[in-house]
Design a protein around this nucleic acid. Structure first.
Lengths: 170, 170
DNA sequence: GAAGAAGTCTCGATCGTCGAGAGACCTCAC
DNA sequence: GTGAGGTCTCTCGACGATCGAGACTTCTTC
């Protein structure tokens, strides 16, 4: 840490960190914009898109999600979740299916059209991002993945620390 | 593309790219969560926060923003922008000041309290992110910054290509 | 000065979200 | 089996954010 140039090196690192923080903010804005464009292009709102993504992820994992779980995932009150499902079902993106094992539950199934729209959207975005990464080596991308993992975990912890502040006070 | 191991290497790269794309999605979710927590902690909604950030950035750049420009920045109709400014002014985060050069314009000034809240929020997040990056060298962070720049630009282009799709069809 | 453009605001309507509570279903103790 | 209590979803009424249309003020141009 010490030695000649140590201070300057620390300064350089601090600059790089600030630059990355700024880039992450810009990236967040752009990715939100992508989601917003997709939403309006399909006559949806932001919550609808988040919900479809959650349902899609659940379906992919093999554990279809229920109405209540979806409400938790998108942080919506139960009344709002019902309205959300009404909207998505009305336009044919979703089907409500009563759970035969537990008659209280409603499990959610995505329609083919919604799957296709999602695949087109995410596929396109992924291709665009892939093209942007085309100039980097496998090792470089692996490093980026490590950094992003660390940064994402830190952001998640920071987000959760907001809510826990009340709980910890006691 | 050809050659011994070429296929495998391409495969590895594709895997790394997919992993990064997934990480970016997760990161976006977490950063949105941070914004949401900040918003509710301060009695604001998502739009309010976006607006405050825009006003803050403008103030920092030395060119204070006007009501109309802000509406464009957060993609809001003029009626909604007026309501937004009413909200933010009511809670004391913002001041409306008529432009002495152009009596139609209303320029926006952030209050000290809003500046402080923003600094606390972004400062805290930046510290958290900085800590997550502490284990990497200057060169590694520089590489990450380059990749993030490319990826962010690509995301921005992709987002804008959504809207242009209609214009291009013709 | 008059005409038109630009910037902001007012009004009425629509839609997403919420809290409270109802209704259906499940679980478990008896 | 039956009743009590918990879980899950939905209904209802209210609130707030957003919008389109248009009014009003101010600037620009002729």
């Amino acid at each position: 840490m010490a030695g000649d140039g140590g201070d300057e090196r620390a300064h350089e690192r601090a600059v790089a960190q600030r630059e990355i923080a700024l880039l992450l903010r810009r990236l967040n804005v752009e990715l939100d914009a992508v989601g917003a464009r997709f939403a309006t292009a399909h006559g949806l709102n932001r919550t609808d898109v988040r919900a479809l993504v959650a349902v899609m992820d659940a379906a992919r994992s093999g554990e279809p999600i229920t109405a209540g779980r979806l409400g938790e995932a998108v942080e919506l009150a139960s009344a709002s979740t019902t309205a959300l499902l009404d909207r998505l079902e009305r336009v044919g993106h979703l089907r409500r299916v009563r759970d035969p094992q537990d008659g209280r539950r409603v499990v959610l199934e995505m329609s083919e059209s919604a799957m296709a729209a999602g695949a087109e959207h995410f596929g396109g975005l992924q291709r665009a991002l892939g093209a942007a990464m085309a100039g980097y080596t496998e090792q470089e991308l692996a490093l980026v993945a490590r950094v992003l993992t660390d940064v994402t975990d830190a952001a998640g912890r920071y987000a959760r620390s907001y809510g826990d502040a009340d709980a910890q006070r006691g």
